[in-house]
Every structure is written in structure tokens, then in C-alpha cells.
Amino acid sequence: MKIDNLTAVYGDKKVLDNLNVEFKEGQITCVLGHSGAGKTTLLKCIANLKDYEGIIEGESPSFVFQEPRLIDGITVYKNLSLVGLSDSDILSGLKSLNMLDKMNEYPKSLSGGERQRINFLRALYYPSNTILMDEPFSSLDIGLKLSLINDFISIWKEKKQTVIFVTHDIEEALLLAERVLVIKQGKIAFDTLIEDEFPREYYGNEKMRKLLLSHLL
């Protein structure tokens, strides 16, 4: 996916300012930045949910939203088939997350963590090679976050989609990203690779943490 001279505004405020970036196929890229830095706007532009100037080249993506965005009136199975997932993908996805027994339940009867797992599953099995993720772990406790990251990595390893993941949390970037872009005032301020193998240790890679922190502050 290639982005050239991307500019997006909210009213008079320029949120993305002539941003240029290329995302490598099959890589997990984390866009790290403070609130208001333009992270979510970048994803919205890529997903065509916001008007912008510039050029975005690439196929239409799937999206892991910050909140699960499941339709409460229909079952988990119907929520997944609604977006075009095949029966075999739904079954194997639910099986890999140990959630086969939840297939005919309504989202309201699931826990917050289970709902977010379905949100991930929907994006991972959607027929697209690009996944956008907008701070999907921000509302989860640490135990749930780590288990969800591990589940995500194990499914992603089979499919190897291009993942663009935004967060303000350095630890999430260190756990999940192969490449980190720090975004500041609508521009890429820092770009680095993380070559540690998956699964990664929580609070590992002290050197990278310090480096990212120095560019974030």
C-alpha cells in the first residue's frame, strides 16, 4: 500500500500534512503517536471513511475497530456472514479462538473480550490482504490484551496480511509491530524496524522502548 501527499483536515485544522509512506506487503506496521496526532484519521482515509487530498494506492481493507461494532440484533454467525465470510472461514475462525459454542449467541450475551475477539476474527478472515486496526486493545485488561495479541499473531502467521495498526501505547507496539512509524503533527517523524521474533516478551526490548519514547516525547 502506497500513500502520496496525503492531507486531511477537520474544519480549519490540518490533521495530516502531505504525508508520504509505503507499507510493505505482509508486514505489521504500527503507527504510534499521541492523541490528535492523526493516527485514526490516517486509517479513516485509507478505509475511505474520510475525505482527503492525495493518493492512496492499495486494495480495500478490513478494519478492527476500537469498539467491536457488532450488530446486537443478530447472532455471532450472522454478524460474520453479513460481511461476506464463508461458512468454512467462520467455523475455522471460531474454532481457532475456542468460540465455536458462541456461534449462535447474540453479541449482548458475550463478554467485552469475546466481542473484541469476534471483531478481530471478522477482519482477519475478510477477503482482503490489508487489515487496519484502530487501538483495538485500549479497553482490555492486560491479561486479555496479551491473550488476544497471541491469538492474533497465530492466525496472522498463516495468512500474512499487511497490517496497519495505530496505538499510543509503546508496549503494544513492542509486542506486535515489525515496523514502527511515529506520527507527529500529521507527518511521519520516525521510522524503524523491530526484528524480534514472535511471540514477544511483555516489557522486553528495553533499548527499543527508550528509542521510541525519545521520538514520541
Binding site: S60, R69, I71, V83, R122
Partner: peptide, 23 residues
């Protein structure tokens, strides 16, 4: 938010009407 979700996942309009709007 649900409407945005349907837009991203290109949910056909008929399915949106029966699964999202009417309920």
C-alpha cells in the same frame, strides 16, 4: 458506527436494511 462498519466491509444495501436498519 455500525453504518461505517457496513461501509468498510461493503455490506450490500439489502442486507443492511434487513439486519441493521429494520431491527
Amino acid at each position: 458506527e455500525q453504518i461505517e462498519m457496513c461501509k468498510v466491509y461493503k455490506v450490500p444495501f439489502k442486507k443492511q436494511v434487513f439486519n441493521l436498519y429494520l431491527p
